[in-house]
Design a protein around this nucleic acid. Structure first.
Length: 339
DNA sequence: CGAGTGTA
DNA sequence: TACACTCGG
């Protein structure tokens, strides 16, 4: 999923506190998928309310945003709008992979292979319209602004960062750099050790930042050339050339100047190249949004999460209490009058 | 994923 | 205090 250029761009390690006072546009679908896929029991079952509704995304959102607000980060969530027609084959491929994974999940469970069951369960992760709606509802109760993008959420988040309305875009995918965000934050979470699946080792996950200008200078490429590299490697909107990865693709684009020259020289054919270039370089975005953070609606959060979804009163009250405490602390320190 | 707890 | 591990819904 998304462009994988981790091997060729350097990401700088950061701590969450480095982003204190910054507004950050978070790719909502990316975050929700991450919660839905990873907040699971060892056999792969998601957290659920007594009525059987999945709650993993809500658990992820409340705890993640509590730590963001506590350190003074101002999150904005940007949801995907209408997918581009060129994305349809990616979308149907993802659906069939999810369906296959769901079958393999059941099989692994029957075989008693819990490791495999969990992995397959994670690959079967689905994000429903209902989950999106209640995520937006919870963010509203937290006083966090939500924006509906006309097209790709990542494009809209990048546009807001490019305009300076937010300081950075946050996503696990690198596409924000292609969409023109000056900064990309990955792993926007408190640093912590996590067990790597299948292996008996732990790694420390910490936030990292990619600065577009620095990354492009380091690569010796323009943004247009990076978009062309993405197109050669394959994006959500085109298939890419077999055998072209970040290393070989970068070498060719730099030698020959752009993807069309590479295609001509090597006899590659990517019919949609002009349309895909336009998706990244002239993205479908809007300026019609308002960023306004409000105090959390404590009673509303408790009513929703505890009374309607079975969350523990004790946990939720403690979590929301931390947000309120951080709010008054930041007001005292005059970091910013953003509530 | 992130909070909380047990252990040294 | 530091970190491994379990539980949450």
């Amino acid at each position: 999923m998304g462009l994988d250029i981790a091997d060729i761009v350097a990401a700088e390690p950061r701590e969450l506190a480095d982003f204190r006072g910054r507004a950050v546009a978070i790719d909502a679908y990316n975050a929700l998928y991450q919660f839905l896929s990873s907040i699971r029991q060892p056999d792969g079952t998601q957290l659920m309310s007594p009525e059987g509704k999945v709650t993993s995304h809500l658990a992820g959102l409340i705890y993640r945003n509590s730590s963001l607000l506590e350190v003074g980060v101002r999150p904005v969530y940007v949801f995907d709008g209408k997918p581009h027609p060129l994305k349809s084959s990616t979308i149907s491929e993802r659906r069939s992979r999810r369906e296959a994974a769901e079958v393999e999940w059941r099989e692994a469970l029957e075989a008693g292979d819990m490791e495999k069951a969990r992995t397959k369960a994670q690959q079967s992760t689905r994000l429903t319209g209902d989950m999106v709606q209640e995520s937006a509802d919870l963010l509203g109760l937290l006083g966090i602004p939500c924006i509906m993008a006309p097209g790709e959420g990542e494009a809209q988040a990048s546009h807001m960062a490019a305009r300076g309305d937010v300081w950075a875009a946050a996503s696990q995918d690198y596409d924000s750099i292609l969409f023109g965000s000056p900064r990309l934050i990955r792993n926007m979470t408190l640093s912590g050790r996590r067990k790597v699946p299948r292996r008996d080792i732990y790694v420390t996950i910490r936030p990292e930042m990619i600065e577009a200008e620095r990354a492009l200078a380091q690569l010796g490429m323009t943004r247009e050339q990076l978009v062309d590299l993405g197109i050669l490697m394959g994006t959500d909107f085109n298939e890419g050339v077999r055998g072209i990865g970040p290393k070989k693709g970068m070498k060719l684009v730099k030698e020959l100047g752009d993807a069309k020259a590479v295609m001509a020289a090597k006899g590659y054919d990517i019919p949609s190249i002009d349309a895909v270039r336009e998706i990244f370089l002239k993205p479908n975005v809007t300026d019609a949004y308002e960023l306004k953070w409000k105090s959390p609606d404590v009673a509303g959060i408790v009513a929703f999460l505890c009374d309607r979804r079975g969350f523990s009163h004790q946990r939720i009250e403690a979590t929301v209490g931390k947000i309120a405490a951080a709010k008054s602390a930041s007001a005292q320190k005059s970091i910013d009058a953003w509530f």
